[in-house]
Amino acid sequence: MSRIWRSRELLVFLLLIVLLLAVGLINPNFWRTRSLMHILNSSLILILVSIGEMFVILTRGIDVSVGAILGLSAVILGVALNAGVALPLAVLLALIVSVLAGMVNAVGVTFLRVPPIIMTLGTLGVYRGLMLIITGGSWIETIPTNIKFFANWHVLGVRFFIWVTLVIVILTTFLLRRFKKARYLYAVGDNEEGARLMDIPVKKTLFAAYTLAGLFAGIAAIIFVAQIGFVPMQAGNGQELRAIAADVLGGVNLAGGVGTPLSALVGAIFLTAVDSALVFLKVPGYWNNAVGGAILLAAVYLDYRVRMAVAAQQRQARAAVRKENNHLNPSTSEEQT
């Protein structure tokens, strides 16, 4: 029980409630127009990208290409749909491309041993370039309505994509808890050397992490296309940064080994709620970046302070044990000078 109360997810969730209450108090209309459901709906894309990014961060890596993968998949989906490809096939195609894009990162990081930041920065450029090459640099303005339909489709009074995302969150949470190979992600991030010694397939695990990051960016791309209804060239731009911010905020440890899909979920909703609140408080939209950056910095700084405090506590506890140990040992109590 105490573990739940100490969890970062809960803390951020409480902060979120406080934020919503505060904005609602300043202007009661907030509650009427921006329901939690509304915020949830607009954070779906970020939630999915953040979960994908989380897999990589769990292994102590980083992937700054997920935004570009989102954009690339969105373009593929848009182009395919406009070319008359059937919807399921187009979706499949977009997902395959995102998985392949993730695999390219995975190959670089695991087999060529290129540092993750360099590898994914390189592919960030490559995927953005591909996006431009495929479209010739112009937006995909019209998207067939069949996919847009899903964005507004309500099932049991809740939007279809919210259900989808919810199912994905629950499924990944379950798998990450119970599935042995998924636990490898934690083990590799917690102690890579140790994982290797424990016969854990480190390379395969890393490979899976980057591939999954790609896949989740691909899923996010499908919701993106359906929700927005067109594909601008900036699609997914900066999404990687927001995803990292959401993860860190929700309690995913950048040093690896700690975090759950719930962290990504709560972090992403919080960031979206902040954006939403800013809009509602009539703060111009161009401040979102500044606020997002400041929140990320504040989050990592607080995280640092908390870690230091915990470490100090542990140190003192250990010192106390040592003192007691000393006391118990009769041979040391009689000091001699």
Partner: peptide, 27 residues
């Protein structure tokens, strides 16, 4: 099997998982 000077544990995982992960056995 080598027990290194600094035990290679996974500090954030449970003791049970530390023992079982990577083991090629029926759980």
């Amino acid at each position: 099997y080598m027990v290194p000077q600094e035990p290679h544990i996974f500090p954030h995982l449970s003791v049970e998982e530390n023992l079982l992960l990577g083991l090629d056995m029926d759980p």
